[in-house]
Simulated scan of single mutants.
Amino acid sequence: MEQEFEHTFLKIRGLNIHIAHKGEGGSGTVVFLHGFPEIWYSWRHQMVAAAAAGFRAIAPDFRGYGLSDQPPDPASASLDDLVTDLFAILDALSISKAFIVGKDFGVRPAYQFAISYPNRVCGAITLGIPFSITSFSSAVKSPGFYISRWREPGRAEADFGRFDIKRVVRTIYILFSRSEIPIAEEGQEIMDLADSSTPLPAWFTDEDLAVYASLYEKPGFAYPLQMPYRVSKTLGITGEPKVEAPSLLIMGEKDYVLKFPGMEEYIKSGMVKKFVPDLEIVYIPEGSHFVQEQFPQQVNQLIITFLKNHSLSK
């Protein structure tokens, strides 16, 4: 499937940023923003569907991820960089307005872009994480919580460094497709939570794993762990911001994120709509944190319906 896409490198703020793209865009443009440890390839199914529906599908590798350059000073990384990069990518491609789709930590720059540049956004779609001005993960107090572990400089690098890249990606996909939050016991590391005998999820093939591993050969994991887990600055969201663009939240019912204290209530009670008034929420039964790869047909149908309902060419 990887051969179905075109690839371009854009000079963005001094870095070569890689984008994969597909489709002519008669109906508009859709930009897909990945999470961790994902790269552009995690959107392969959605890009094919969007292009077939008449849209131009674009999926960048964030700075420091995949085939994109790593910034010279990782310690100064900021999520604001991703918002500014997105603005520059749209300008470089002469795209005046686009749909923004975000997954995992890609949700944060997606919504910040929609708040900062509402005239550049047709609509926002997020998967796995809703818009929020607070961090639900901070309520998980266990010292073995994966985010707590990965925030420690050098700890995840040492943990990951015991294995080859393919084994690291494989283990993360196994752990984070489960419904329970990955938490290590005392004396145990996150990579120890799944061994080599644990099978990959049925929807993630050996070919997919090989593509991921090849795309991590260049950057490694040092910068991806910095962004998003160790960023010194957060997005400048103040007060009670409103996302005015029409929005869609897709959640897998078995997504471990729903186990973060307060998360499920925040979504199901409608509290999230205080900040995103024009929001549709859809749950996919049995869906995991990787729902767009696990159930691509269902996710594609939801995305394409949303795009067509809010397309500029409608």
Rank of each mutant, 00 (worst) to 15 (best):
Q3N: 14
H7R: 06
T8G: 01
L10A: 00
K11D: 14
V30F: 07
H34C: 03
I39D: 02
Q46M: 01
V48S: 08
A50R: 05
A59Y: 11
D61P: 03
F62E: 01
R63A: 03
G66W: 07
Q70F: 04
P72Y: 06
A75M: 12
S78N: 07
A92F: 02
A92E: 08
S94W: 08
F99H: 10
G102D: 04
F105D: 08
G106F: 04
P109M: 06
A110Q: 10
Y111I: 13
A114Q: 05
S116M: 13
Y117P: 02
V121T: 11
G123L: 09
I125M: 15
T126F: 08
I129K: 08
P130H: 08
I133N: 11
T134V: 14
A139R: 13
V140R: 05
S148Y: 07
A156N: 00
A156I: 00
E157K: 10
A158T: 09
D159R: 08
D159T: 04
F160Q: 12
F160H: 12
F160T: 10
F160N: 11
R162V: 06
D164H: 02
I165L: 06
K166S: 15
V168W: 06
R170G: 02
T171E: 02
Y173T: 07
I174N: 00
F176Q: 12
R178T: 10
I183H: 04
E189C: 07
I190K: 03
S196Y: 00
S196W: 00
A202W: 12
F204Q: 10
T205Q: 02
T205H: 02
E207W: 00
L209E: 04
L209R: 01
V211M: 04
Y212F: 15
S214Y: 05
S214L: 07
L215C: 09
E217I: 03
G220L: 05
G220H: 08
A222D: 12
P224V: 13
P224G: 11
L225T: 11
M227Y: 10
Y229G: 12
S232C: 11
S232G: 15
K233D: 10
G236E: 14
I237C: 01
G239Y: 03
K242C: 09
L248V: 04
L249E: 02
M251L: 15
M251N: 12
E253W: 08
E253S: 15
K254L: 11
Y256F: 15
V257A: 09
P261I: 04
P261Y: 03
M263C: 06
E264T: 14
K268R: 15
G270L: 08
G270N: 03
M271C: 11
V272G: 06
D278Y: 04
L279T: 07
L279Q: 06
L279A: 07
E280P: 03
E280R: 13
I281T: 14
Y283R: 07
Y283F: 15
I284Q: 07
F290L: 13
Q292A: 15
E293G: 14
Q294V: 12
Q297G: 01
V299R: 05
K308I: 12
S311V: 01
S313K: 13
